[in-house]
Amino acid sequence: MNLFVLVFCTNFGIQAVFGILALLLNTEIFFDFVGSLTFISCSILCLMFDETPEVSTSIKEIKVIQMVCVCLWAGKLGSFLLYRVLKSDGDKRFVEIKKSKVRFFRVWMIQGAWVYLNMVPSLFVFTAKKENPRLALVSLAGWALYAFGLIFETVADYQKTMFRSKEENKEKFITTGLWSISRHPNYFGEILLWYGLFIAAVPYFTSPFNYLSILCPTLTALLIVKISGVPMLEKSGLKKWGDDPKYIEYLNTTSSIIPCLGGNNKHKTA
C-alpha cells in the first residue's frame, strides 16, 4: 500500500468528518486536538501497514523512533491546547471565522494540508525498506534537534501557563524565563523540532527531489512567523499593552523568535 496516499486520505478524511461535526455544533473547541489526533493516527497507521521484511529489524526500530517523536509532540501539544481552550471557554481566532460556514470548513481543510506537509519528511522514513548505516549520525542529529526543540517548547508553555495561573498576573505579559530571551520561545522550539524530523529523514531519501521536502518545515516556520502565529499575537499584544512603555521596551529589546538576538527597535508607545 502507498503510505503517501493512505496518509493523505486518512488525514483529510478526519478533517472532513470533524469539520462537518464542528459546523453542526458550531464549535471550534476540538480543532487543535483533532489536528494532533490526526498526526498520531497517521503515524500509527504507517507502522500498521509497514511492509518492511521481518529480517530488517534496524529499520523497524528507526521507524518506531520517528513515530514516537511525532506522537509525543502531537500528544503533548494537543492535550495542552485542548486544556487551554476549555479553560478559556473558546478560541479567539475563530470569533470571525465561525460567522461563515464555508470559511470555517475551509480552515479544517487548511489544517489537513498543514498536517500532511509536516508528515511528508517522516513518510520517507516510514516507507524505507532498509537502514542507511553510513548516515546514521544524520538521523541522530535530527532527533537531538527535535528533542531540544520539544523540550524548549514544553518549558516555554509551562512557564507561561504558570505565570497566567497567578491572579496578580492576570492582565500582565510574561518577560521571565525563556520569555526573557525570546517573545515566542514556544514557536522557536516548534520550528526546531520540525527541522529535526526532516534531518532525521534525510538518510532515507531515494531521490534528489526528496530534498525539496525541506519546504515542509520551512512553510510551517513561515506560517508561524509571518501569518498565523507571531503576527496575530503581536497585534493582540499591542492592542492590549501598546500604551505601556515596559511592553514597548520588551518588544524593542527582545528577539521575536530566535533567543538572544535582541529586538528591532521599531515599536513606539501608542
Rank of each mutant, 00 (worst) to 15 (best):
Leu3Cys: 12
Phe4Val: 04
Thr10Ala: 08
Asn11Pro: 09
Asn11Lys: 08
Phe12Pro: 04
Ala16Trp: 14
Gly19Leu: 02
Ala22Asp: 10
Thr27Ala: 04
Thr27Glu: 01
Phe30Cys: 13
Phe31Lys: 03
Asp32Trp: 03
Gly35Lys: 01
Leu37Thr: 11
Leu37Ile: 09
Ser41Val: 13
Ser43Gly: 05
Leu47Pro: 03
Glu51Gly: 12
Glu51Asn: 14
Pro53His: 05
Glu54Gly: 02
Val55Tyr: 12
Val55Phe: 10
Glu61Val: 09
Ile62Val: 13
Ile62Thr: 11
Val64Gly: 05
Cys69Ile: 13
Cys69Met: 14
Ala74Met: 08
Gly75Trp: 02
Leu77Ser: 06
Gly78Asp: 00
Phe94Glu: 00
Phe94His: 02
Val95His: 04
Ile97Gly: 03
Val102Asn: 09
Met109Glu: 04
Gln111Glu: 13
Tyr116Pro: 10
Asn118Met: 15
Val120Ile: 15
Ser122Gln: 13
Phe126Gly: 01
Lys129Arg: 10
Glu131Asp: 13
Arg134Asp: 13
Ala136Glu: 11
Ala141Glu: 03
Gly142Lys: 05
Gly142Met: 07
Gly142Pro: 06
Trp143Tyr: 14
Trp143Met: 09
Leu150Pro: 03
Val155Gln: 02
Ala156His: 00
Ala156Gly: 03
Asp157Ser: 06
Lys160Tyr: 02
Thr161Ala: 15
Met162Lys: 12
Phe163Tyr: 14
Phe163Met: 03
Glu171Asn: 14
Lys172Asp: 10
Thr176Arg: 08
Ser180Phe: 03
Ser180Lys: 09
Ser182Ala: 08
Ser182Met: 05
Arg183Met: 12
Arg183Phe: 12
Arg183Tyr: 11
His184Cys: 11
His184Pro: 03
His184Tyr: 10
Glu190Trp: 12
Leu193Gln: 14
Gly196Ser: 08
Gly196Asn: 06
Gly196Met: 06
Phe198Val: 06
Phe198Glu: 06
Phe209Gln: 05
Thr218Trp: 12
Thr218Asp: 07
Thr218Glu: 07
Thr220Met: 15
Ala221Trp: 14
Leu222Val: 13
Val225Ile: 15
Ile227Val: 15
Gly229Ile: 01
Val230Lys: 05
Pro231Gln: 11
Glu234Gln: 10
Asp244Met: 04
Tyr250Val: 07
Asn252Gly: 02
Ser256Thr: 14
Pro259His: 09
Gly262Cys: 12
Asn264Leu: 07
Ala270Lys: 15
